[in-house]
Amino acid sequence: MYQLEPDRYYPGLSMAGIGRFLQFEVLGASPKVRACVWISDTLAADGRNLLPPMAVVGMERSPYPIGPRGSARWCSGPIHPRRVSGRDFIALDFGRPGRLFKTRRHGLMQLFGKDIIIDSRRLTAFARDISLVDEDEYRRFKAPTSISKFEDLRNYDLEYAGIYEDLWFSDSAFVVLKSRKTDKVFNFAGVVPNIGNPNFSTRLTISIGKTKRTFPLKVGEFLVTVPVRSGETTQRVSFSFDSYQHLPFGDDRPVTLKLHYLGFSENPGESVQ
């Protein structure tokens, strides 16, 4: 893990570049724990922004079923810390070697010294938070019912993946939300941008439990609704798309749409601004 640096998306927070392996000694560990990580590959500047295929390792290996791009916060399945010489340890394997951070060169930097490495760190991603929680603490997580602004991703009780910090969606994503007893639908609203191809289209598939719905999306604003069973429960909502675009002006992130609102509600379109 490299030194802390200011978070570019969340003023007041810090982040740190990480390599492939991290090992932690666990003090006063419960018999079973979960490793919760908040990581991002949004700043990779490589046109892919792929999250690492990571796993936590104790007495067993528990992979993280996270989405392919952008940022994610997810807790592992329960694991037993590995005991070595009377001390407890866990490790994180980020599943790929670290790579040089791509640096864009401007002005005279494009004429001279292009073979000089500006940032010598070999990174797999950036980490904002790595925490260990026991089962009681994990059960006390209060998942939100909706997401509508980028600050919502700062909620430490929210588990998600495949969404960039500024609410652009990648081609695969999920969120874990809590529905209320009176909720009957899931609303999803946003905009598919015109960034060079006015004829762009994609097929969106939303999965909630055993319910699956597919919607064709074209350039412009949209609102889609999926019926859900009423009941107060925590549910994983998954999104997949069959095509994506790259953001212009040197950003180059693969995106499908910009989120305006997603969440459970009593009526179609309700709470969507």
Score class of each variant (00 low, 15 high):
V237I: 15
L247N: 04
D115F: 02
I130Y: 09
N199H: 06
L257G: 04
F174T: 02
F249T: 10
T211A: 11
F249Q: 15
V185L: 08
L4V: 05
W38K: 11
V84G: 07
V56F: 03
G250P: 10
T145A: 12
E221N: 09
F264N: 01
A143M: 13
E165V: 01
G86D: 10
N49W: 09
K184H: 13
R229S: 14
R236I: 12
F174R: 03
F239R: 05
T211E: 14
D136I: 04
L262Y: 03
R48K: 13
Q110V: 09
M1N: 04
F89C: 09
D183S: 13
R48G: 07
Q3H: 10
I90C: 00
Y138K: 05
I118W: 03
G12C: 09
V84Y: 09
F174L: 05
P65S: 11
G58C: 09
N194I: 04
P68K: 05
E25H: 00
V57F: 00
I79C: 05
P248M: 07
A29G: 15
P6T: 02
P248E: 07
A91S: 15
E270D: 14
F249A: 14
L247K: 06
L153F: 15
R229C: 00
A173T: 03
Y9T: 07
K212Y: 03
G269F: 10
S62N: 07
S230W: 00
K114E: 12
S207G: 02
H260E: 14
F101H: 10
R213C: 01
D46W: 11
F188S: 06
E60L: 06
F101L: 07
R87N: 08
P6G: 01
S179M: 06
K32G: 02
L217D: 00
